[in-house]
Nucleic acid binder design. Structure first.
Lengths: 361, 361
DNA sequence: CTGTTAGCGCCTTCAT
DNA sequence: ATGAAGGCGCTAACAG
């Protein structure tokens, strides 16, 4: 029964002060448990607070304090597993702090520009986490001079060394993936990625391509443009691209997909074409999202949750004490061998051109 | 470049007023584009704003307005696909409004209680969306009397009819799932769900069980307690439970899993035991998450994204104009037949045999 | 049309 | 130890 509660209008600090017969200052001190308040007084105030069901207005408090107690995370396509996992890491650490988490999902260049322009501004939020999105030159300056601390996660653009960030070495990851395939005896290795020159300019796919090329070069295998196909980041597109790759005159014996999600499309296409994985085709993904384990997909693990966690922790640290020089944390990806890759020797019936069997089965 | 920009301290409305030689009121009017301001004046003010790189302090504005322009969503296990999809729907509609989205992830009863207690309070946020979490009696009263509008999504507790909400009929969904199996000739049908009496008291699994029982009863099949197994909501646990079900003396010929995620565990277990799906075992899931299509999983679709969308829209509507009587929107689930269910008799036939995507091994 | 002023609710000196 | 008052930045009357 809310007898003492004035319905319709929430109690303010003044109401409490009045009811407790003290000044607002004292109430404020009690709220922020300042030690300089008499025990008896504190009691009375707390009783009044309870009676009035009072709780301080965050807005007012923050205005006064000059802080918002909110942290923004700007993430592209936040429903994609990789981002969900990073978000999870971020949420996990923020949940143990007084900071609230505001999510900005960007799926269009316009939204991205809007976020880069508006979010890191003024006292909107106390800090910003940016996932995978590369600020454009015009944004860089603004961000750099922004009053609010920014931490980049999974953004590898070389021009951004002035920022606090946690990165994982995608070049190394790409190298590892391809090296694994090479070690298994494969020489016709294709790389399937999203558009390298898309509007979002993600650095990861490009870096992984670089790693792919490096590994190939080291093995003395020339780069074949027709073994690199680009397309939208989703299963069906990957399926389509893979079908093309697998009907090439000299079809690849292994495919390196730039993400696990795309790898599922590769698997699907292989199935439609009647190719067995890994006997006829080796497939390696990237990310090691949860699904990968279920599919027994060989992949490159980049500890997504962990990267989110570290990004959030870094931001917290920066918030507590701005570092003199930008902090950069690096993480190394790791090969996880499961069951979609196998030695090339198993598939000695090469040269055979694949003719599409009835798809869908 | 940034000559006019006082570094270190952001410009306030007063700075702008001063620089433009007008009063703060006028600046405020320009900001909120009030029509009652002379064109020339407006020009000067806007120039000053640009020059000073001014943008209003949201905190201050909101304090003054008495609104926060923020909406909270309280969701359990927000990394689970079903919640991600609902979140996606919510984000999608909120992105087109001036509201920011604050996410509260609850994974423990403590966190839930905290959220129910603190979040819907005062002027923390303008509105709250609660996903799948049933407020306990003590929360109900607080929520009901809360100054901030609340919309429940996917919460079917009967005692909550006083709330605005969008629900999907889980009883009907369960019925449909089982009816589909019955239509295929199955009579030994098991139900695999998460703990019905867990700390979160999700209504969905319980309602689906009810649907399961109704369908069975209608078909004249008695309910067998040993055909209902409960466990944690994850693949490995579902795997374990399924193994038990499938080694029962009279093993079920079909399993209805309370979620697609759990269905994957069922599939996995069947595979381990050398049972073919759907020839030896029919499997139906629930939710129709994205993965379901890839796995060719027969399931009950409940339009997750759509439900999030409608929840957000409802909240927006309530915000704009509080309804006299609580609004309740219902959605009906829909059977999606794919390839993990088949007639019970098909074991003998030799039809188009399709195995759900299975890892090598 | 526009300047002035009084809050919004809270925190923080500054006296007492 | 505590009360009073100024200020955080902005909006919304109220006078001109």
């Amino acid at each position: 029964m809310g007898l003492a509660v004035k319905r319709g209008k929430a109690a303010t600090i003044r109401d409490v002060a009045e009811r407790a017969g003290v000044g607002v200052g004292t109430v404020s001190r009690v709220i922020n448990n300042s030690p300089t308040v008499h025990a008896a007084t504190r009691q009375r105030v707390q009783k009044a607070i309870a009676k009035l069901n009072y709780s301080p207005n965050p807005m007012a408090r923050h205005l006064s304090l000059g802080k918002t107690m909110q942290i923004a995370v700007i993430a592209p396509f936040f429903t994609r597993p990789a981002f969900v996992e990073r978000l999870c890491g971020i949420e996990g650490v923020l949940a143990q702090t007084p900071y609230d988490l505001i999510v900005y999902n960007v799926e269009t260049p316009e939204k991205r520009d809007f976020c880069f322009r508006e979010v890191p501004q003024r006292k909107r939020v106390d800090g910003v986490l940016i996932l995978s999105l590369s600020p454009r030159p015009e944004d860089v300056e603004r961000l750099a001079q922004s009053e609010v601390p920014v931490v980049l996660v999974d953004v590898n653009a070389p021009a951004l060394t002035g920022f606090n960030r946690v990165v994982v070495d995608d070049v190394a990851g790409g190298r590892q993936a391809v090296q694994h395939l090479l070690d298994l005896g494969h020489r016709r290795i294709a790389y399937l990625s999203d558009f390298l020159d898309g509007p979002f300019n993600f650095t990861s796919s490009r870096d992984r391509l670089e790693g792919y090329r490096q590994a190939l070069k080291l093995a003395g295998i020339p780069f074949r443009p027709d073994y690199h196909s680009q397309g939208a980041h989703n299963r069906s597109e990957a399926h389509r691209l893979t079908s093309q790759l697998l009907t090439l005159a000299e079809r690849p014996t292994a495919i390196f997909a730039a993400s696990d999600t795309q790898a599922t499309g590769v698997l699907e296409a292989a199935r439609s074409l009647g190719l067995r994985v890994p006997e006829d085709l080796s497939v390696i993904g990237y990310d090691d999202i949860e699904l990968a384990e279920y599919l027994q997909l060989t992949t490159i693990r980049q500890c997504l949750v962990e990267s989110g966690k570290r990004g959030a922790q870094l931001l917290l640290r920066v918030l507590a004490q701005p570092p003199a020089v930008p902090v950069q944390e690096s993480m190394v990806p790791e090969l996880v061998v499961r069951q979609t890759t196998a030695p090339r020797a198993q598939a000695e019936k090469e040269g055979a051109t694949v003719t599409a069997i009835a798809p869908g089965a």
